[in-house]
Amino acid sequence: MLKVENLRVNVENKEILKGVNLEVLPGELHVIMGPNGSGKSTLALTVAGHPKYRVVGGRILFNGEDITNLSPDERARRGILLAFQVPPEVEGVKIIEFLQQVLVELKGMDPVEAYDLIVKKAEELWFKEEDLHRYVNVGFSGGERKRLELLQAVLIEPKLLILDEPDSGVDVDSLSIISRKIDELHKRGTAVLLITHYGRILEHLDRDDLKVHVMKDGRIVKTGGGELVERIDREGFSEIFEEVGA
């Protein structure tokens, strides 16, 4: 489904990704771990098409199509959704109107039908109907922002959901609902690419099912199964890096 081939990416003329290879098959759940600055978020933002992240080598394929040069909205239309690490505030735009428009544009839904669906799904992520009349992310706590990202994922039901640290800056209760929603989406067939620092978000997920990649300095240096998560939790990254000579 997603195939990243020898991807090299520059941000403001600095090379951040130095040749990343990754393949995610339909329905798979991949986890990318690694220390700060290893290029995890860059990978996520590049796959989603952020204009600041310039591909200088390699390519990104989605369902066999080269999407390296597509705009973010065209990627979204093909089924890719990125849940942001720090979703921006959009002043004056009400959540409900934004989500309605997204569902109308992306899924061809009728606005009234979309409204009802949004209210229903929002409740599952602890948003009351009146919360939906707030502006997108404006004055939101960390937990609220991440829950709103998950709400969008649940509504859009992408083919590939990329989550950039859905567990950072989140309270314990929000973490548990976010984790459960990821599991729910995964079970319904969404392929997931999850970026995280630590394993707690994975508690609700079936570890045997995971493919785990460890990044360092713009490369994936080790790939393994769920056992890698426990090992990193226990030992940190340094032993792994030593082992692979990275």
Binding site: R77, L81, E89, V90, G92, V93, Q101, L106
Partner: peptide
């Protein structure tokens, strides 16, 4: 902001309209 809205499937024109209205 523009990237955020576009990553939800709104094209640049629609995303810009939404930001301006907001």
């Amino acid at each position: 902001e523009l990237f955020y809205l576009m990553s939800r499937g709104l094209d640049e024109e629609k995303a810009t309209q939404l930001i301006v209205k907001g």
